[in-house]
Amino acid sequence: MKDVKIISFEPKYAKDFAQLNTEWLEKYFVVEPHDTELMEACEENIIDKGGFIFFAQVGESIAGTFSLIKLDNGFYELGKMAVSPSFQGHKIGQKLMQFCIDYARTNGWERLVLYSNTILENAIYIYRKYGFKEVPLEENPPYLRGNIKMELIL
């Protein structure tokens, strides 16, 4: 496999962001209104509100993505993490995760939170491997599919 580069959001990659996330959501769940809001207007709803979107690029292909959605100063939600099925099995998700944590620490953030579902065993394994711990799920989480909330204190 060619080298994996982590690159920042550019408007030309907005379609890749939506496609990668729609692909896995439709495979395991459904695309919820909150997902649609974030994916169809990612620049307005993530970037312009102080968040970030990154991509894993292999050659000329976008192989994966994730976003950091600002919740408060120094507090971000790791969301919309996805790797294209054609690139799975090459540890791209782990490269994205390590980049995410390094980026958060470099910027002096306090913590990251994420929402997931326990049927996504590989994802939960990776989150735990990188130090995320399960915390209580609030009464009305942002995603209906979310049955686990995890946090990483930086």
Rank of each mutant, 00 (worst) to 15 (best):
P142F: 01
M150Q: 00
L20H: 03
M1Y: 15
N73R: 04
M1D: 15
N107E: 04
S61C: 15
F87S: 00
I126S: 12
Y28E: 04
L137P: 04
D3A: 10
K133C: 12
E139N: 14
E60T: 13
E23C: 10
E110G: 06
T65W: 01
L152H: 02
F54N: 06
W109T: 15
N21C: 02
S61G: 15
M81G: 02
I47F: 05
V4N: 10
L68S: 04
A82V: 09
L152F: 10
Y115F: 09
T118N: 10
W24M: 04
G50W: 11
Y103A: 05
I119L: 10
M81Y: 03
N117W: 10
G64V: 01
S116D: 12
P136T: 08
E26P: 11
A63I: 12
G108Y: 02
A63D: 09
K5I: 01
P141V: 08
G64E: 00
F54W: 11
E60A: 10
Y13G: 08
P142V: 05
F52V: 15
Y28H: 12
G131H: 03
E43D: 13
S116Y: 04
E151C: 14
A63Y: 05
K95G: 01
M39V: 06
G51V: 03
A14G: 07
D72N: 09
G59M: 06
M97D: 01
E134K: 09
F87C: 04
G51N: 01
P11H: 14
S116E: 05
G79Y: 00
K129E: 14
K15Q: 14
V113Q: 03
F75R: 03
E37V: 00
F52E: 15
T65M: 06
P11C: 14
K12N: 12
D48P: 04
A82Q: 11
M39G: 02
L144F: 13
V113C: 04
C42I: 02
D3I: 11
V135F: 03
H90F: 13
P142L: 07
L20R: 00
S8N: 10
E77A: 11
T118E: 14
S86Q: 08
Y127L: 07
L71F: 06
N117E: 08
Q98R: 11
L38T: 01
V4A: 07
S61A: 15
L78I: 06
K70Y: 08
V83E: 00
I126E: 06
A56Y: 05
V30D: 15
I119C: 13
D102N: 13
L20E: 02
Q98H: 13
N45V: 07
Q94D: 14
F66V: 06
Q88M: 13
V113T: 08
L120Y: 02
L78P: 00
I62M: 14
Y143W: 06
